[in-house]
Simulated scan of single mutants.
Amino acid sequence: MEKKLDPSHLDVVAFARDGANLQGQSPLGTLPRLLDEQFAGDLQAGQVLWRLMGRLVPQSGGADQIWLDLQASVDLPMQCQRCLTPVLETVEAERSFRFVADETTAAALDDEAEEDILVISRDFDALALIEDELILSLPLVPLHEVCPKVMPMSAVDPEFESESAKPNPFGVLAGLKTGKS
């Protein structure tokens, strides 16, 4: 009988030792911080699709390294920064994490290691990690490829434009200077 793995209470050591894979989909509502990033409009967010893979990497003269590979994606309605209407952005995250025994080791390795370092936990919340990675992968400026409606692009301030339509009170003086009326 295969035991059921819970991504919000994952034993990272056992998961990596077994070379386990876990995949699923979660409604956006189960990830409240990511839900806050969506734009209220007529577009619907998709399911959060995710996959976790555990692995051990053998080290000569030391204990095997514990790794967790993460892939996640979601279609998230956001506000186009060009036309200010909803745009459905596909947000994807793909990262690998190495786990170490304690915070001190993680802090010491964090500056020199290229990979992300996390502390081993027997009750690791992988769904929170998925949410974090998707938030970090959000586009800085969501845009349509081609906006559905054309927005007027004007460098002139409407207030300034209405002022320039008024007659210039010094226009008469300019006419006197050149001898014209």
Rank of each mutant, 00 (worst) to 15 (best):
S8E: 11
Q38W: 00
D11W: 07
L28H: 05
F39S: 09
S26Y: 01
G29I: 03
F39C: 14
L28T: 08
P32W: 06
F15L: 08
F15Y: 05
L28E: 14
P27D: 10
L35I: 00
G41M: 01
G29T: 11
A14C: 04
L35V: 03
A14K: 14
L22V: 01
P27I: 02
S8L: 05
L10Q: 13
D36G: 11
R33E: 12
G41W: 04
P27C: 06
L31I: 03
E37V: 03
F39N: 13
V12Y: 09
L35G: 01
G24L: 05
S8C: 08
G24E: 02
F15A: 01
L35F: 08
Q25A: 09
A40P: 00
F15H: 05
S8T: 06
L35A: 13
G29N: 07
A14Q: 14
L34C: 07
V13M: 13
N21S: 15
P27L: 04
G41T: 03
P32H: 15
P32G: 14
D36I: 10
A40Q: 05
A20P: 13
G19I: 10
L28I: 13
A40H: 01
L31S: 07
L31V: 03
G24W: 02
L10R: 14
S8G: 05
A20S: 15
Q23I: 02
G19P: 10
G41N: 06
A40D: 09
H9Q: 09
L35Y: 04
P27R: 09
G19F: 04
Q38H: 05
E37I: 01
G19M: 13
D11M: 07
P32Q: 13
G41V: 08
Q25D: 05
A14M: 09
L10S: 11
N21Y: 13
L22K: 02
L10C: 09
G41I: 02
L34Y: 05
F39R: 11
S8I: 02
Q23G: 14
D18E: 15
R17N: 10
D42N: 10
P32L: 11
R33Y: 12
L34H: 08
D18Q: 14
F15V: 06
P27A: 10
V12L: 12
S26Q: 04
A20E: 15
H9L: 02
R33F: 10
L35C: 10
S26C: 00
V13R: 15
P27F: 07
D42Q: 10
G24I: 05
F39G: 04
L35N: 07
N21W: 14
A40C: 02
D11E: 10
G24M: 04
F15D: 06
R17D: 15
R33I: 12
Q23L: 00
G41A: 05
D42W: 09
Q23E: 14
L28W: 10
F15Q: 03
Q25F: 00
Q38L: 00
G24T: 03
Q25K: 06
Q23D: 13
A16S: 08
H9T: 06
A20N: 10
L31P: 00
G19W: 06
N21C: 14
S26P: 04
L34N: 03
L31F: 04
F15G: 07
T30L: 15
L28K: 14
G19T: 05
G41P: 03
L10K: 14
T30I: 12
L31E: 06
L35P: 00
R17I: 12
Q25S: 13
V13P: 01
L34Q: 04
T30G: 12
R33G: 09
A40F: 01
P27Q: 03
S8D: 05
G24Y: 02
N21A: 15
F39Q: 04
T30S: 08
